[in-house]
């Protein structure tokens, strides 16, 4: 929102909206907040999402779950790779936004590069983690028995406040690589990249509703994220012990799976692993009898 000289072309400012069901609505509440950078510069009029926005987003995420979870893992992999391509193509814009949000140019470039690489990393896992974490179980009775991971459902994520792009990508990617859908609350103080990332998602063949991104205040929305009866899991990335306690307590309403990523350095090797995917997976075990004809021998 810089003032321009009279001779200059007037810059077209971007309206930062939220992302629900593949659309870019404004918050239904009509509210906004103005995050600023360290120098006190206003970043934008950002949507101050409401509980109702969250509920709408959960409806979208639930609606998208059946289709997304039953896509071929290979197809999900292709789409995550496409997301990386789109992000690469818009690198400059993300670097700009990170710089506006106080990052140095070098650090901003590093963050964007890592975010792109992280998408590639999880694109590769989409059709592999199942093989790693599945088992054919040698049961004693005459049954064929196997266990495979399956996505848990709708995941409500309160993204890292600090690494507003890399952190965001690092928590979304494993969740959707595993076939879940999600509603994400972006960094409150640094929301720009999250909204622009929604534009990347929107142009990446990712079906609407798989990822829904809200901007707003964790202090206002966190309790609704864990209260909702149609959310299956919650990820929380901050080290606020009161909020963590509240999340554990409220998650009991429908026994949400809860993970806290409060000690993760998203820049390091520990910031990525298939175990993040497994945090929002269920193990399903299937049994079927094997015909056992006396005298048939081993069949060799």
């Amino acid at each position: 929102m810089e003032k321009t000289k009279a001779s200059d072309r007037l810059e077209v400012l971007k309206t930062y909206k939220i992302y629900i069901g593949g659309q870019f609505p404004r918050t239904e509440s009509g509210r906004y907040y103005i995050p600023t950078n360290a120098a006190g510069k206003k970043l934008a009029n950002v949507c101050l999402s409401s509980r109702k926005d969250f509920r709408d987003a959960v409806v979208s995420a639930r609606g998208a779950f059946g289709g997304w979870s039953s896509r071929a893992a290979f197809n999900r992999s292709q789409i995550l790779y496409r997301m990386a391509e789109m992000l690469e193509g818009r690198k400059a814009q993300f670097v700009d936004e990170l710089v506006q949000q106080d990052a140095s140019k070098i650090k901003a470039e590093k963050e964007v590069n890592l975010a792109i690489d992280r998408l590639i990393y999880y694109a590769g896992w989409c059709d592999k983690f199942q093989q790693l974490f599945s088992a054919v179980n040698p049961v004693a009775s005459s049954h064929f028995n196997f266990s495979v991971p399956e996505p848990t459902g709708v995941v409500a994520i309160i993204a890292p406040q600090g690494d507003s792009l890399l952190g965001l990508v690092s928590v979304i990617a494993p969740v959707i690589a595993g076939g879940n859908t999600c509603v994400v609350l972006a960094s409150e103080t640094k929301p720009l990249c999250a909204v622009t990332f929604a534009e990347v998602l929107n142009s990446s063949d990712l079906p609407g509703g798989v990822v829904n991104i809200l901007t707003g205040r964790p202090a206002e929305l966190a309790s609704w994220f864990v209260d909702h009866m149609d959310v299956n899991a919650t990820l929380y990335c901050e080290n606020n012990s009161d909020t963590q306690k509240m999340i554990r307590e409220k998650s009991a309403t429908n026994l949400k799976r809860v993970s806290f990523y409060d000690k993760i350095n998203w820049y390091g090797e520990e910031g990525q692993s298939p175990y993040f995917i497994m945090d929002t997976q269920e193990i399903k075990t299937t049994w079927h009898p094997v015909e056992n004809i006396a005298g048939a021998g081993g069949g060799y």
């Binding site: 088992a135 004693a140 009775s141 049954h143 193990i283 399903k284 075990t285 049994w287 079927h288």
Partner: peptide, 19 residues
């Protein structure tokens, strides 16, 4: 569901995850 039995039911085994 965590355990699905096809053409059988209520089978359990130490090697078979349950939950």
């Amino acid at each position: 569901a965590g355990v699905v039995w096809a053409n059988t039911f209520n089978k359990f085994d130490p090697a078979s995850p349950f939950g």
